[in-house]
Amino acid sequence: MRAETRERIEKLFDRYPEKRGALLPALYLAQAERGFVDREAAREVAELFDLAPVEVMEVLTFYNMFHTEPQGRHHVYVCTSLPCSLRGSRTLLRELGEHLGVGPGETTADGRISLDREECLGSCGTAPVLRVDGRYCENLDLDSARRIVDELE
């Protein structure tokens, strides 16, 4: 972990009555370096928080938005909860997968895109929806979704 990341994490501690409260925001900062938090980075975070590495690992693996393995340069998530499914999101997920040549949970061979499904994104009124690198793309059909994905470098 870079010294700058460590400093930013340490600055978070006094926002909470106990410094462990800063663990989730700290893991976001650690993940921002390379897109995932491996065992070594988790060990460094644990040291900053006076925790055992396993305590950091169990938090990391509990939450969907943290990754412990290398990821594609871009993340594309398709919401597959009921309101989106009723409006065809599972068809969209299958067709996007065929277009990219990967299944949910996989990354394209060139490392460009990780495709996955996600549970309710809170866009039921504008379904189906993609979450692309943290940005919401709503009211989609296959053509518009494919265009969005194709524009990712």
Partner: peptide
């Protein structure tokens, strides 16, 4: 008031 972000867990 402090904003604290979750990380994906219903």
């Amino acid at each position: 008031i402090i904003v604290h972000r979750g990380a994906g867990a219903y």
